[in-house]
Simulated assay, not measured.
Amino acid sequence: MIDASAFKFPTGTQWVHLSKKYGNWRSIYNRRRMWAIDGTWERVFTALMAQAEADGGLSWAVSVDSTLVRAHQHAAGARKTWPRPQNRPIMPSDGLAAG
């Protein structure tokens, strides 16, 4: 189950397309989901981080990947087919100036 999860997320494959060597994809998905709900994954990662910290092998590196940022289809810079309305100048009213 752990090997299947380790394979699935870096490759981005869907659960249903997991290799048969990992077993039934529904069983793997359900067990992984239940471990997330009951806190098993959090306890595993906490224990692994504590062990790595004790061994001196824990270092943090943050990487931000902007290749997944998407723009709306209208943000592509295509030329508009209609003319933009002109701003009309605002003129003071004659009635207010005379009063």
Rank of each mutant, 00 (worst) to 15 (best):
M34H: 11
A4M: 10
N24G: 07
D94N: 09
W25L: 10
V69Y: 09
A75C: 09
W35I: 00
S5N: 09
S66I: 04
S5D: 05
Q14R: 14
A54R: 06
A71V: 01
P10R: 15
A75V: 01
F45H: 11
N30A: 15
L18M: 11
E42W: 00
A52G: 03
A6D: 15
D3L: 09
S27V: 14
V16D: 15
P92G: 07
A71F: 00
I28V: 14
L58K: 07
T81F: 05
G95R: 13
D94G: 09
N87A: 13
G56N: 00
G12F: 08
S19T: 11
V44N: 05
A97G: 03
A78E: 03
D3M: 09
D65T: 02
R88N: 08
I2Q: 06
V69C: 01
A98K: 15
Q51D: 07
S63G: 01
G23R: 11
W25P: 05
K80H: 05
H74K: 06
K80P: 01
A50S: 11
G57W: 01
R79Q: 02
A36R: 08
M49C: 01
A4L: 07
S63K: 10
I28E: 10
N24D: 15
W15I: 08
T46D: 05
A75M: 05
S59R: 10
A97R: 13
W41F: 10
P85H: 03
F7M: 10
I2K: 07
I2G: 15
F7R: 07
W82E: 06
F45L: 09
I90C: 04
G57Q: 08
